[in-house]
C-alpha cells in the first residue's frame, strides 16, 4: 500500500517540481492560441535572408534553377514554410525549376504536393499557374547522395537519363523532353542550386558541387553550421528555420530598400528590390513566428522558475 508523504512541499520545492503534464498543457496552449489571433511582429531581416531574397529577385524571367528538396513531413514545421516561400518567389518571377532529392524516398511526393498547392494558389489569385513538365520537372529520388551529387557536378544530364515525370493529364514522359531541360547541358546552366534540406545532404552538396552557386534553406538546428558556410562565401544566401521564413515573407511584403512604413534597408544592395505587395505573402512564417515567441517565453520562464526554486532551497538549507 502506498504511503502518503507526511511533510508538505515547501514553496522552493514546488517551484522545482512543476508536474510535467501541467507544463505540457501550458506549452500546447501557448503554441496554439496565437494561431487564432495572428499578429504582425516587428522584424529586421538578417543579411543571410536578404541575400537569399535579393539573388532570387535579380534573376531574369525564364531563368532556371535546380532545387534539391531533401525534406519530408517530419520537418514540415520549418521546411514546408521555406519551400512555399521559395515557390511563391519563383512562380511570380517566372523562373523554371528542376527538383530532385537524395535524402528520402518520400521527399519527391511531398515536394510534388507542395508545388501543386502553391501553383493552384497562384492560379486562383490571377497569376500564371505552373504546369508540371512544362514549367517544372521532378526528377525523383536518388540513393547514394555522394555519387549522385558528384554526377550532378560533372555530368548533369547523366542523372536525367531514364527518369520520367508526369505532364498534366498525360502518361509519364522522358524528362529530357521537358522544355525546362532544353538548353541545359551542365549544372552550370542553372542560375543556382537551392537546397531545401533537413538532413546532412547540405554538406554532401557543399563538398561536391562547384559549378553552380549554392543557396540553402535549412532547419533551425542546422543554422549554426551553415552560417559558417555563408560567412565564408560558400553560400550566396541562407534561409534558416521559422525566422528565415518570416524574413522572406517580410521581404516579399515590404521589398528591399522600398520606401514605406516598414522599410527594410540593406547596406549591400543599393538598388530598390520590390516585393509583391497585395499578394498572398504571409505563409507559415507569419503564422508560426508569434507562437514560437510564446513557447520560448515559457521555456525561459521555466528555467528561471527552476533556478529560483533551487536558489531558495539552497539558502534555506544553509
Amino acid at each position: 500500500m502506498a504511503t502518503l508523504d507526511p511533510t508538505p512541499k515547501s514553496f522552493a520545492e514546488k517551484l522545482q517540481s512543476v508536474p510535467k503534464p501541467v507544463l505540457y498543457l501550458v506549452l500546447f496552449l501557448l503554441a496554439a492560441l496565437p494561431l487564432f489571433f495572428p499578429v504582425k511582429l516587428p522584424n529586421k531581416p538578417i543579411d543571410a535572408s536578404i541575400d537569399f531574397y535579393a539573388h532570387l529577385m535579380q534573376l531574369p524571367e525564364g531563368s532556371k534553377v535546380l532545387i534539391s528538396s531533401d525534406w519530408t513531413n517530419s520537418t514540415r514545421g520549418e521546411s514546408m514554410g521555406e519551400m512555399e516561400a521559395l515557390l511563391r518567389i519563383l512562380m511570380r518571377k517566372g523562373i523554371k525549376f528542376v527538383v530532385y532529392t537524395t535524402a528520402d524516398p518520400q521527399a519527391p511526393q511531398v515536394a510534388r504536393d507542395t508545388i501543386r498547392k502553391i501553383a493552384d494558389e497562384e492560379g486562383k489569385a490571377g497569376g500564371y499557374r505552373y504546369k508540371p513538365f512544362e514549367d517544372y520537372v521532378i526528377l525523383g529520388y536518388y540513393p547514394n547522395g555522394e555519387g549522385t551529387t558528384s554526377a550532378i557536378n560533372n555530368k548533369f544530364l547523366s542523372i536525367c537519363e531514364g527518369k520520367k515525370d508526369w505532364p498534366e493529364n498525360s502518361p509519364p514522359r522522358d524528362v529530357l523532353q521537358s522544355p525546362v531541360l532544353q538548353g541545359i547541358k551542365s549544372v552550370s546552366d542553372f542560375k543556382y542550386l537551392i537546397m531545401v534540406t533537413a538532413s546532412s545532404t547540405n554538406t554532401v552538396v557543399l563538398e561536391r558541387v562547384t559549378k553552380a552557386p549554392l543557396m540553402f534553406m535549412v532547419t533551425g538546428v542546422m543554422v549554426p553550421e551553415n552560417t559558417t558556410y555563408y560567412a565564408s562565401g560558400q553560400l550566396k544566401g541562407l534561409c534558416g528555420g521559422v525566422k528565415g521564413v518570416y524574413d522572406l515573407e517580410t521581404l516579399m511584403e515590404d521589398g528591399l530598400n522600398v520606401e514605406g512604413p516598414h522599410k527594410v534597408l540593406s547596406e549591400k544592395y543599393t538598388d530598390v528590390i520590390p516585393g509583391f505587395p497585395g499578394k498572398q505573402n504571409a505563409g507559415k512564417g507569419n503564422a508560426y513566428y508569434p507562437s514560437l515567441h510564446f513557447a520560448l517565453f515559457l521555456l525561459i520562464l521555466a528555467v528561471i522558475t527552476g533556478n529560483v526554486g533551487m536558489f531558495l532551497s539552497k539558502r534555506k538549507g544553509a
Partner: peptide, 15 residues
C-alpha cells in the same frame, strides 16, 4: 536553435 526547431514542429502540429 535545436529547442527552437522542436518548438516549430510542435507549432506546426497545432496548426
Amino acid at each position: 536553435t535545436t529547442v527552437m526547431m522542436r518548438f516549430s514542429l510542435l507549432i506546426d502540429r497545432m496548426f
